[in-house]
């Protein structure tokens, strides 16, 4: 109960003060170079310069269909609306072949140098966007 109150107080504090929100959020996440992007019929995860450990990609959308799975990965689609893809340790960019409508996706991972968990949401691939 006390912990819940602390969290709710924190939420109240953050919601009530924009400058505080900015300071707090700066502490929460830092980009560490990995990206998840929408590509033509798929999602591409790029680990950046270091190995991404225990990578998990989740997606949600309509009529999801898995076209291909990267080597060593385990991907499942539940009910045609949810994708759960365990990529394991990723050293170079990998692409999950996927089709669907209104897809939102995110990826989380750790680094071998620490226990922090990192997270990105999928964004349109920059190279493909520039090509259009």
């Amino acid at each position: 109960m006390r912990v819940t109150l602390r969290v709710l107080l924190l939420a109240l504090l953050v919601t009530s003060c924009a400058p505080v929100a900015e300071v707090v959020t700066d502490l929460i996440t830092r980009s560490d170079g990995a990206t998840l992007s929408y590509v033509h019929q798929g999602l591409k995860f790029d680990p950046g310069e270091q190995v991404a450990v225990g990578v998990i990609v989740r997606a949600e959308g309509e009529n999801l269909a898995l076209l291909s799975t990267p080597d060593g990965a385990t991907c499942t689609i539940v009910g045609g609306t949810q994708l759960d893809c365990r990529l394991g340790d990723v050293t170079e960019p990998v692409t999950i072949g996927l089709t669907g409508k209104g897809v939102v996706a995110n990826a989380s991972w750790r680094r071998s140098t620490g226990s922090s968990v990192y997270l990105v949401f999928a964004v349109p691939d920059q190279l493909e966007a520039e090509g259009e």
């Binding site: 999602l43 669907g100 209104g102 995110n106």
Partner: peptide, 15 residues
């Protein structure tokens, strides 16, 4: 959280 943000109206991308 993906479900929550979709329910909140975040539009996804067609693949």
């Amino acid at each position: 959280l993906l479900s929550a943000v979709r329910a909140a109206g975040l539009m996804g991308q067609d693949l």
